[in-house]
Amino acid sequence: MAVLVMTGTNSAAPIRVLIVDDHPIVREGIAALIERQADMVTVGEASSGEEAIACYAAFLPDVTLMDVQMPGTGGIAAVEAIRSGSADAAILMLTTYPGDAQAVRAIQAGAAGYLLKNSIRKELLDAIRSVHAGRRAVSPDIAHALAVHALDERLSEREVAILRLIADGHANKQIAWRLGVSTDTIKANLKQLFAKLGVDDRTHAVTVAVRRGFIDR
Rank of each mutant, 00 (worst) to 15 (best):
T9A: 12
T9K: 11
S11V: 14
A13S: 12
A13Q: 10
L18H: 04
H23R: 11
V26N: 06
V26R: 12
G29M: 07
A32N: 13
E35Y: 12
R36N: 12
A38T: 15
D39M: 01
D39K: 00
G44W: 06
E45S: 09
A46H: 04
A46M: 02
E50V: 13
E50S: 12
E51Y: 06
A54P: 01
A54L: 11
A54T: 13
A54F: 09
C55K: 09
A58F: 07
V63D: 03
T64R: 04
M66Q: 07
M66W: 08
Q69P: 04
P71Q: 03
G72K: 05
A78R: 09
A78S: 13
A78P: 09
V79E: 08
A81S: 14
G85V: 08
A87S: 13
A90F: 00
I91D: 00
P98V: 09
P98A: 13
P98Q: 06
A103P: 07
K117F: 01
A127C: 06
A127L: 02
S130W: 03
G134V: 06
R136P: 00
A143M: 12
A145V: 12
L146F: 10
A150P: 04
E153T: 14
R158Q: 14
R158V: 15
E159P: 10
V160M: 08
A161Y: 07
R164M: 12
A167H: 15
G169I: 07
A171C: 09
K173Q: 09
W177Q: 11
L179A: 00
L179Q: 01
D184V: 08
I186V: 15
N189W: 07
N189R: 08
Q192Y: 05
R202Q: 15
R202T: 10
R202Y: 06
A205P: 02
V208Q: 02
R211Y: 13
R212F: 04
R212T: 10
G213I: 03
F214V: 05
I215G: 01
D216F: 05
